[in-house]
Simulated assay, not measured.
Amino acid sequence: MNTSHDIENIRLTAAEIGELWSTYMNNSASKCLLSYFINKVKDPNISELVEFSLDLSETHLKVIEDIFKTVNHPIPQGFNEKDFNINGEKLFSDSFMLQYIKYLSRFSLYNYSEALTVSSREDVRKFFTDSIQSAVELSNKNDDVLLSKGLYIRSPYLNVPEEVSFVSKKSYIQDLFGDKRPLNSLEITQVFINMQTNILGKAFAMGLSQTIKDRKIKDYIIRGKEIAEKHIDVFSDLLKESDLPSPMTFDAEITKATDPIFSDKLVMFHFIGLTAFGVASYGNALSKSMRADVSATFTRLAAEIAKYAKDGIDIMIDNEWLEEVPNAIDRKKLIEV
């Protein structure tokens, strides 16, 4: 096992720097939102969960700072108390906070798992291993609270098959037109998960658009709400075709608050992150969808939200809000000097 001295002599790889940097930025943004939540939540069970989530974010930030210091890597600026108004009106209900934390745990598990597989330095691997375990604990705690309050949204049920069967027709995959087979369980899962994410995103956008004063930022968030609504309708139609129910929406969990709560920079970062995760989630859904029209749908929707994310990045660049990801040295530029 490497000692602390040995670790300090091992350089961080590009993958490790990138994953640590991204994790720091995401936790920095989440800390702001969770700090706001903890000051507004009323339900003691949900308050305990929000506090647990906030503690995790603070711990992750500290560990990453310590790792970066071993190689004299600059600490990202990220976000801080200047990016949110802790005394602002309550914008989200306690129930919405639960749903947000459920999304947060899923987002974290996805990213930490990938980060672990590309990390080699012992302390970095330990950090992401611990992060995965804490994200699992957060997910389980969250689900327990959701279940206890009758707020857990289950995916549709299927009848148990009587026997094992095999595909006998190529139309199982290739049929783009005419009669289509019902969705299989993997396709249902992906449609359901991505529909839930859009339901959360729509409500989040609806709430934030009430509080944003800058017209360009407000229009961008409203556009995101409209895209989410359209995608929800697409997924709902897919479920209806197979006589399956759609999950409930969270629109009623947004209050009438209109006072500014989060900085425009934080709002944009959150939405670009939500959208980027949506692109990745659609890509995963595409790999698990065997019906050709379902695959084509996820491809089309992914392209639409990728364009939306690109437009958001342009807004951040125009406002000089986009903190640059650590990159390789521009050797051509050095040669020209």
Rank of each mutant, 00 (worst) to 15 (best):
I313S: 12
K288F: 11
M97P: 02
S165N: 14
A252P: 10
K230G: 10
L147P: 02
A303N: 02
V167L: 09
K230S: 13
G278N: 08
P74E: 12
I232P: 00
G278H: 04
D259N: 15
R331P: 07
L208A: 12
F271W: 10
F107G: 05
S120A: 11
L183M: 09
D43C: 04
E187K: 07
N72C: 05
K307M: 01
L34R: 05
A14Q: 14
L138M: 14
M290C: 04
T3S: 11
K216V: 05
A205M: 09
P260W: 02
D55F: 04
I101Y: 02
Y152V: 01
D243H: 13
D219T: 10
I221D: 04
K225Q: 09
A285R: 03
H5G: 06
K256V: 06
R215S: 13
G78I: 04
S53V: 05
K149G: 05
G312I: 04
L158F: 12
S30L: 07
M268I: 09
Q196T: 10
D179C: 13
F277V: 04
Y36E: 03
D83R: 00
V325N: 13
I335M: 14
E8H: 10
K169A: 15
I38C: 05
Q133E: 14
A280S: 10
L151K: 07
T249L: 07
A257K: 12
D318K: 12
S185G: 11
T211C: 13
L20T: 08
I232C: 05
N39H: 06
E51M: 13
Y152N: 02
P76W: 05
Q196H: 15
I173H: 08
F262K: 07
K102N: 08
F96K: 04
P44H: 04
G283H: 10
N2M: 06
G273Q: 08
F277C: 06
A309V: 09
S53D: 13
Y172N: 05
K126M: 03
E65P: 00
E58F: 01
E226H: 13
N26H: 07
S4R: 11
S155H: 08
Q174H: 14
D143H: 11
M290I: 09
Q210N: 12
A252R: 15
W21C: 09
K82W: 10
L33V: 08
K62M: 14
R223E: 12
I232W: 00
F262H: 06
I212P: 03
D330C: 12
Y282L: 08
I10N: 13
D243Y: 08
A203M: 08
D143R: 11
M25F: 05
L138R: 09
H73F: 14
A257I: 01
N327P: 11
Y152S: 07
L200M: 11
P182G: 11
E162T: 15
G312E: 09
P247A: 00
T275F: 01
S295A: 11
L301S: 08
V279R: 04
N159Q: 09
I232D: 00
E65G: 09
I188E: 06
V50Y: 03
E16W: 00
S35C: 00
S171I: 10
F250P: 07
D130I: 03
A205D: 00
C32I: 02
F204G: 00
V294I: 15
W321D: 12
T258I: 10
V71E: 07
R154N: 15
K213P: 08
I7D: 01
K332W: 08
